[in-house]
Design a protein around this nucleic acid. Structure first.
Lengths: 133, 133
DNA sequence: GACATTCGATTACAATCGTAGTCAATGGTG
DNA sequence: CACCATTGACTACGATTGTAATCGAATGTC
């Protein structure tokens, strides 16, 4: 019997600029490369550059192109959440030595949280404290 | 009158591997390149590689070499805290679109916080809520 | 002081990233 | 159907990163 090997898609690395593109994709997919540009700061991005990124992202397996009509239509293959997971754990390990608490402290001190944010976070922490509460 | 321009040391980018080296530096400075290697996973780092990084980090202005005795002695010029600041705000912007709350939520859900961590964080949030409390 | 050893500065080199340009095919227009 | 415009595939190219090797200078040894 042949055992199917689980298709471990170990999330590829997504560079800074690729993230910008991907945010446009996640927010508006399915979309074309031209549409992607529309959702990016127009003065900082040229169409050709966007195109290159679409290609690279497809090669990396982050998106998929439907080569059907004339303008290619793209969809994400990996969700923003998944990417946040990867990027987040890398960041945590790299910058905060894998310790979540100092990281949290850092962002509590440096980020500007609204009163609402703070309330919400406290609630979240409560729940975590007593998972069934 | 000549106005002194504040010496804005806009923190340079520090790559993943450079971060590893810098952690050794921050933890044990002042130290030599040979000592840096001692504090890194020995099987993953060669002395020559470490050396290259020391050079690059000096070029970038992250560390400084004292060329006095024979083995160069290195010190950091930028603190871990400063670097965390830079790296943190980039990460926040790139991955969480600049919104701190979702970031925090993410790490509350994904990181494993101890009861103690949670208590501490709640306290921090309290303080933030009433800054003079 | 001659020689072996140790270190640092310089050089190397492939992969990835940012930023496009070229060129050819596809598709709309008259 | 001939032509022009759009668009995608491929190519380009310098900077950065990861990973070292080479080569020459400073140091310690006899």
């Amino acid at each position: 019997m042949v055992v199917a090997i689980s298709p471990v898609m170990n999330t590829p690395r997504i560079s800074d600029s690729e993230w910008e593109v991907m945010k446009a994709v996640w927010d508006h997919e399915p979309l074309t490369a031209v549409e992607v540009l529309k959702h990016l700061p127009h003065d900082q991005w040229k169409q050709k550059t966007v195109n290159t990124f679409m290609n690279r992202l497809e090669t990396k397996g982050v998106i998929r192109a439907e080569r059907v009509g004339r303008p290619n239509v793209y969809r994400s293959l990996i969700s923003e959440k998944q990417c946040r997971g990867m990027e987040g754990s890398q960041f945590l390990k790299k910058v905060f030595r894998g310790e979540v608490a100092p990281l949290m402290l850092h962002f509590i001190e440096n980020g500007d949280l609204s009163k609402n944010d703070i309330a919400e976070l406290k609630q979240m922490l409560e729940k975590r404290y007593r998972p069934d509460g």
